[in-house]
Design a binder for these strands. Sequence first.
DNA 1: TGCTCTCTTGATCGCTCAATCAAGTGAGCC
DNA 2: GGCTCACTTGATTGAGCGATCAAGAGAGCA
Lengths: 208, 208
Amino acid sequence: MEPTRERILFAAMTLFSEKGYLSTSVADILREAGANSGSLYHFFPTKQDVLLAVLEMYRDGIYPMLLAPAWEGVDDPIERVFALLGAYRNALKTTACLYGCPIGSIALELHEPDPPVREMLSVNFEGWVRHVKGCLDAAKSRLPAGTDTHALATFVLTTMEGGVMQSRTHRTLAAFDASVAGLRNYFTLLQASAGVAAAPAARQETGT
Amino acid sequence: MEPTRERILFAAMTLFSEKGYLSTSVADILREAGANSGSLYHFFPTKQDVLLAVLEMYRDGIYPMLLAPAWEGVDDPIERVFALLGAYRNALKTTACLYGCPIGSIALELHEPDPPVREMLSVNFEGWVRHVKGCLDAAKSRLPAGTDTHALATFVLTTMEGGVMQSRTHRTLAAFDASVAGLRNYFTLLQASAGVAAAPAARQETGT
DNA sequence: TGCTCTCTTGATCGCTCAATCAAGTGAGCC
DNA sequence: GGCTCACTTGATTGAGCGATCAAGAGAGCA
């Protein structure tokens, strides 16, 4: 049996993604983990500190638990971006569109999160975007010259989160698929316009 | 003074978008509305029925309260799409990136919402998409032949929701702007490719 | 053996929550 | 006046919440 602290964290991670943070009670976590309240409060001062530790697990697990499996056997950097989106599609599909991205759910669930929580959510998004930006930078020669790869990677995350939100609401993959298809088509057009010339219109500009 | 039922609904709408549904107590609503619990429970059987009524207000208010102001003085159908996104940008800006889209927040806050609530969230998203699709259909001649305007409108909503989520988390407009800039660039490329010919790659395909 | 220190046990606390209810108010109507 | 009925009042209920705490278990070491 794993140590208690790990069991509590794993139980909390599961329940937060299944029921959300606010709807998960400390008693739920204790039942799932097979622990007593005193143990939990021995390791974590408050329920919020459990959330913080879970978010740290996501931050540290993004490569080994998410990217590595999704990218196995996929070498093309642009295909890796869509393989990652495919992993989220698979998560939606295997849960009947119930669970999507736990970070996104928590981000919208907590309207004015305490600064450390907001910071960890921010860090998680940044890590995700940074990895996607890595793919885009590796494919730089196939994108229009001057492409802002960070902004484009942000747009990829936007597509994933927005698609997951709608698919979870409609309980259908259609919205997620339509969003990813739109992004795929955008990438096709970007690569086509990169082949012709570095047309100004093909640049990804940020801000207004 | 407005009738009690309206005051309760307006208070609930405000608080749900400020603090979220779960974090808003019935007592909060009563305080804000200046009403007593008996009055609330005279009009609404449960707190969830208050939420349903608020979601009905959003559904019915999407044109008069959101689209009409955003589209005033904007005739070009594609510019209307971006004027709508601009309205959300403005909401973010004037609230220091605290409040985005209340429907999206509630959609992710409730992980397994009771069927009627999920249905109303779904209907709200559908209404939004239908209006954007109307714009895209009006601009059909400028888009590649065979463009799936419903899928593209879904992608527009995805861009808004995903951008709002990230901007609220980072407390910066950057992610929202990067997302809308990506969508704008996509539309530019779509219109450019429509001018040339109905290239197969320019179609917005759905599914995998 | 006996001391120390980390971790566990589970009853308990004070509080907030959504919801209830009996009593009361007052406009409209006969 | 007297009746009706839609609405209001606000104290109250019981359940569930996050958090506390005194007591104890047990490994590691002298």
